[in-house]
Design a protein around this nucleic acid. Structure first.
Length: 465
RNA sequence: UCCUGGGUAGCUCAGUCGGUAGAGCAGGUGACUGUUAAUCACCCUGUCGGGGGUUCGAAUCCCUCCCCGGGAGCCA
């Protein structure tokens, strides 16, 4: 029994302490009346299942209170747990006492005893976790968060808190949100531009788009590290897989090359899928039944097979020779388009796919240049239905190569001196990747829209609560 | 930002050729019932996204604005 003196329904259903007096606290999902008594379905958020409560008419306030209970009312109920005589549940609670904490006027309470569209539920951000599906997502998210930490802790990684407010731009990651305390009605200017010298930090600061560069610092001191925190992109993206605020996991490993990076990433995803199946079987069952019929088979397939692997150059050859007409032309040196990735991942390989060794011209400065001097040691992991879920690379550890890459890309070396120091002093081969946590939850749950897998989605034009 | 589909009852939607609106679910009342998406009967609910225009007459046609979904780009 937990410290707060009442049973959680999840535990109750698991242990089934028959003929004991127990007390539950939760919210009424539905009420059905029968001759002489009522059935109450109570959910306390601990699991998908409700507990069926039998409330006899002999209970005090039966007419005035119990017969008025509707979806959403909060209650405390104590009584004896008994085997249920009817099908549908193993046990039920014979109420001896029912106390109503709060009513929920059925005329105005938005949640009804029926299925709602996810679009509608998005409009009631503050009530949607009370539904079966969004509650299940919340539990899955919590479990997977813990699973992330467990994986890395088991592997000897250290958890690093990289800054949320940053003054370094992880080039190529996307548009940044500026953090400022300047008076927006009267912005000080210098040389016809805002004078960030007068701002809070004495320079322009932003919300982080990636903790990678900072994680490298600790990687090159502690060996293997990871970050897990909020990340912000000010892109005007209107899709089912982009958020302006999302959570990213970024491991960074010293003495590690791209091959090992890919092995680690594959093992990580498989670990989390297995973790979800082990710790959230009822939630996965629910998603499989109501959200995505093919979910369970797909997750099983992910665990059973190795991820497919292909280099960028091989991918280009494959796309060119497949005879399929694409809206965007296929040419070496240009980025793979969504349709190309989907074709390879969903039609050719039909499983997660790792594409590696992209042209250096389309990748950021920090990726390690391969011996061909044309490609870099980068990799993306694509999964069916979602697309890119991981992007990673071996980092350029050779100081002279890094300096020439900065110059090639027209970046100011002065801004990266600290980063270059990591190569000047005791440099080591190292690699890492970034996993979009919400995309992972989408993949594991089958939820089609990323706005359903984060409690409070932030997208262009929308930041409720 | 571009392409595309939408906005009608609390929710999900239908609405023909332009003639001021309907179903299912939810809700209310009653009946029945160890029920479990309960069942049956009856009842209630509308600024048809906003504004403008065409017309005798607009949910329907035209213009415009707002909002939402899906796709693309960008990426995780």
């Amino acid at each position: 029994m937990p410290m707060n003196q009442h049973f959680r329904i999840a535990q109750l259903l698991k242990t089934q302490p028959l003929s004991q007096t127990v007390e539950i606290r939760g919210w009424v999902r539905t009420r059905r009346d029968s001759k002489g008594f009522s059935f109450l379905e109570v959910n306390d958020g601990s699991c998908v299942a409700n507990l069926q409560v039998i409330a006899e008419e002999s209970l005090p306030h039966y007419e005035e209170e119990i017969l008025r209970l509707t979806t959403g009312c909060s209650v405390r109920i104590s009584g004896g747990l008994a085997a249920s005589p009817a099908k549908g549940q193993a046990v039920e609670l014979k109420a001896a006492e029912v106390e109503v904490y709060g009513w929920a006027d059925p005329e105005t309470y938005p949640l009804q005893k029926k299925r709602h569209s996810f679009e509608f539920l998005r409009e009631i951000t503050h009530l949607r976790p009370r539904t079966n599906s969004l509650g299940a997502v919340a539990r899955l998210r919590s479990a997977l968060s813990f699973g992330v930490h467990r994986f890395f802790q088991e592997q000897g990684f250290q958890y690093i808190h990289t800054p949320i407010i940053t003054t370094s731009d992880c080039e190529g990651a996307g548009e940044m949100f500026t953090v400022t305390t300047l008076d927006l009605n009267n912005i000080p200017r210098k040389d016809d531009r805002p004078d960030f010298g007068k701002d809070f930090f004495g320079r322009q600061a932003s919300l982080t788009v990636s903790g990678q560069l900072e994680a490298e610092i600790y990687c090159l001191a502690l060996g293997s590290v990871y970050t897990f925190g909020p990340t912000f992109r000010a892109e005007n993206s209107h899709t089912s897989r982009h958020l302006a605020e999302f959570w990213m996991i970024e491991p960074e490993m010293a003495f590690c090359d791209l091959a090992e990076d890919m092995r680690m990433a594959e093992a990580f995803i498989k670990y989390l899928v297995q973790y979800a199946l082990d710790h959230c079987p009822e939630e996965i069952e629910l998603f499989g039944n109501f959200v995505d019929k093919g979910l369970k088979a797909r997750l099983a397939a992910v665990l059973a097979q190795d991820f497919a692997r292909i280099t960028y150059s091989e991918a280009i050859d494959r796309l060119k020779s497949c005879g399929k007409a694409f809206a965007f032309p296929v040419a070496w040196g240009t980025d793979l388009q969504s349709e190309h990735e989907r074709y390879l991942c969903e039609e050719v390989f039909k499983r997660p796919l790792i594409v590696s060794d992209y042209p250096k011209s389309i990748k950021p400065f920090y990726m390690r240049v391969n011996d061909d001097n044309a490609t870099v040691a980068a990799m993306d992991i694509l999964v069916p239905g979602i697309g890119e879920i991981i992007g990673g690379s071996q980092r350029e550890e050779r100081c002279d190569r890094l300096i020439s890459r900065l110059a090639e890309l027209g970046l100011n070396q002065k801004d990266y001196e600290w980063y270059l120091d990591l190569r000047r002093y005791g440099t080591v081969p190292h690699a890492g990747f970034g996993l979009g946590f919400e995309r992972l939850i989408q993949f594991v749950s089958g939820m089609a829209n990323i706005r359903e897998v984060i409690p409070f989605p932030r997208t262009p034009g929308s930041a409720a609560l």
